[in-house]
């Protein structure tokens, strides 16, 4: 099983004719994802990797029965693309685009909330359910089907940890990249809820980083729902306050968002938190025994 996406998910790629959109559509198809439609305004009627391209999401959904969206549209157009996907009822809407202005994200999240649509991202690597479906840009070859749910705010660090799991023969049910922005859609808490409700997921890896309080919120959820073991890792233990560490959301401000506070909250909630990313796979193996 998996969360958010599965083998029946029919993906529409917005910005499919751009460099990133076209490249990653090919990788998604190789993974086995049903990419059924693309949308690029002005390029309707074309094809990208044999996938038909439409002018609007509405037409694409009508013609192909797409159910989910993957957005590669550049930052200036990302809000419009996301609002269009949400309005068409696609779910989830995965926004890969980096650099989306925060006021744009606020509108996207409000529209999604009212429409009951789950947005993943922006500034995220996407969602991968090994053997079933991949939306986004995570490298195909790292994954292996299995019982571990992975949820993270970062891209490459997730790949590093997933590779560590697969290397030890531990597969994943779904890996979710939440995105590195201060305002994102699906949160750690949302992801934990989904993993807790998924019968095939038996353990969860939570990869957090400095900034905000999403990890602390997740810890509060864990205190009430300790049914599945959680292994954590928090990046940025040595990051100085006030500095944005690459991700727009990775900043300690006014004493809030430190790695120490997040580690402490997760440990108090019963999670086992690794000091080094290389320890995570070993900890997971222990809890799966």
């Amino acid at each position: 099983m998996s969360v958010l996406i599965n083998r029946t998910t029919r993906v529409l790629v917005q910005g499919i004719t751009g460099y990133q959109g076209e490249f990653h559509t090919a990788r998604m198809l190789e993974f086995g994802t049903q990419v059924v439609a693309g949308v690029t305004p002005g390029k309707g009627g074309q094809k990208a990797h044999r996938v038909p391209v439409f002018e609007t999401v509405e037409e694409a959904v009508h013609e192909t029965g797409a159910t989910a969206a993957c957005i590669f549209v550049p930052a200036r157009g990302a809000k419009d693309a996301a609002l269009e996907a949400i309005s068409a009822g696609l779910d989830p809407v995965v926004i890969i685009t980096e650099g989306v202005p925060v006021h744009d994200s606020l509108q996207v999240m409000e529209h999604a909330r009212r429409s009951g649509v789950r947005v993943v991202g922006p500034n995220c690597p996407g969602v991968t359910s090994p053997g079933q479906c991949k939306i986004g840009i995570m490298p195909n070859h790292l994954f292996k089907p299995g019982p571990v749910g992975v949820v993270s705010r970062s891209g490459t660090l997730t790949y590093e940890i997933v590779a560590g799991l697969s290397g030890k023969g531990i597969g994943q049910s779904t890996a979710i990249g939440l995105g590195g922005d201060p305002v994102v859609g699906v949160s750690f808490t949302d992801a934990l809820k989904m993993f807790h409700d998924d019968p095939e997921t038996t353990a969860v890896v939570l990869i957090g980083e400095i900034g905000g309080s999403a990890e602390e919120d997740a810890a509060r959820f864990l205190e009430d729902h300790r049914s599945k073991p959680v292994i954590g890792y928090i990046a940025g233990q040595t990051a100085p306050p006030g500095k944005r560490m690459g991700h727009a959301g990775a900043v300690i401000s006014g004493g809030e968002g430190t790695a120490a506070a997040k580690v402490e909250a997760l440990r108090r909630a019963g999670a086992r938190v690794a000091t080094l990313p290389g320890e995570v796979a070993g900890f997971v193996r222990e809890v799966l025994r």
Partner: peptide, 11 residues
């Protein structure tokens, strides 16, 4: 990747 670089500083 921002997360990986932060983790590298920590390591």
């Amino acid at each position: 990747g921002a997360g990986l670089v932060m983790a590298t500083l920590d390591i």
